[in-house]
Amino acid sequence: MKKKQIGFELSIFETSDELSKDEKKLLETAEAARYDAYAPYSNFQVGAALLLENGQIIIGNNQENASYPSGLCAERVAVFQAGARYPGVAIVSIAISAASKEHLLEVPAAPCGNCRQSIIEYEQRQKSPITLIMRAEKGPIYSCTSVADILPLAFGSSFLGDS
């Protein structure tokens, strides 16, 4: 038997002033999108903002439904909108802002499993990493250089015979 440690590097910023101008703007855009989330059931609001390689910023926020599986997370709303509006244009980075109406969040919320899988497919298809920037209402900002960092051993089209 062999064992292998899988890990990644996470950058932690104390304030948004430590981010680049573009990263700070993207995070502020995600936060603004969060306020328009439709989350009457969970009271957990998430906003996402994508920076595309053509300079466009695409937003998304979570959209809940009384039939829970019918809702959609902020990250997938933004990613699918980018794919529909700008097919073939690479996603450079995604900022995610999360907050709860029931308690103060002090640790960033990373994308759920469905969102990670959706984002990794775009990353694999475009053959370039998508930087993640994540912040809660209060506390540090987390950033990693690729969604593959938070989804090791990702499932992709290569398993289906596609390269």
Rank of each mutant, 00 (worst) to 15 (best):
L50H: 03
S11W: 03
A48W: 02
V107C: 10
I12R: 11
E9Q: 10
Q5G: 01
Y35P: 08
G161D: 09
H103E: 12
V89S: 00
C115M: 05
N61S: 15
S42N: 04
L26H: 00
I150D: 08
F13Q: 00
E14T: 14
Y86Q: 09
S67N: 14
E14L: 12
G83M: 12
L19M: 04
R116H: 06
N62Y: 00
P129T: 14
T145C: 10
A99L: 09
S93L: 05
A154W: 06
P111S: 07
K21I: 15
L50N: 07
E23F: 05
E64L: 04
L104E: 14
T145L: 10
N114P: 05
F159K: 14
N114D: 12
D162L: 15
I120R: 00
A110H: 06
G156R: 06
E23I: 08
M134N: 06
P129Q: 10
K101G: 08
L160C: 11
E14M: 11
N54H: 00
S11V: 05
A82Y: 02
E14V: 08
M134A: 15
E106R: 12
C115T: 05
K3T: 13
L160E: 14
R125D: 12
A66V: 13
A74V: 05
E14P: 05
L151S: 08
A37W: 00
Q5Y: 11
V89T: 10
A95M: 12
T145Y: 05
G47C: 04
M1C: 09
F159E: 15
N43M: 13
A33T: 12
S11H: 11
L151A: 10
I120E: 03
R125C: 07
S128M: 13
S70E: 15
L27E: 02
T29R: 00
L19T: 04
S158K: 15
S93F: 01
G156P: 02
D36Q: 13
L72W: 05
S163A: 09
R116N: 13
A84M: 09
S100W: 01
E9A: 09
G71W: 06
I96L: 15
S118R: 05
S97F: 11
K21T: 15
Q56Y: 04
E31C: 03
D22V: 13
I59C: 14
T29Y: 07
I6Q: 12
E28R: 09
G60E: 07
K21W: 07
E137Y: 00
S100H: 02
R34N: 06
F155D: 01
S20Y: 08
A84N: 11
I119K: 01
P87L: 11
A109R: 02
P69A: 09
V147R: 05
I58E: 06
V89M: 05
G156M: 01
L19R: 08
Y86M: 03
K127T: 03
A78E: 08
G71Y: 00
A39T: 14
E18Q: 15
G55I: 04
E28Y: 02
T131K: 15
A66S: 14
E106S: 13
A90M: 01
E23V: 04
S118M: 15
K4W: 01
E137A: 10
T15N: 11
K4N: 10
A74M: 01
A82H: 02
S158G: 07
P111G: 09
A49G: 07
K24E: 13
R85S: 13
G88C: 09
L151K: 01
L10K: 08
I91P: 04
C73Y: 06
R34V: 04
E9R: 10
G113H: 11
S42A: 11
I119E: 04
A32N: 06
S146V: 09
K101I: 04
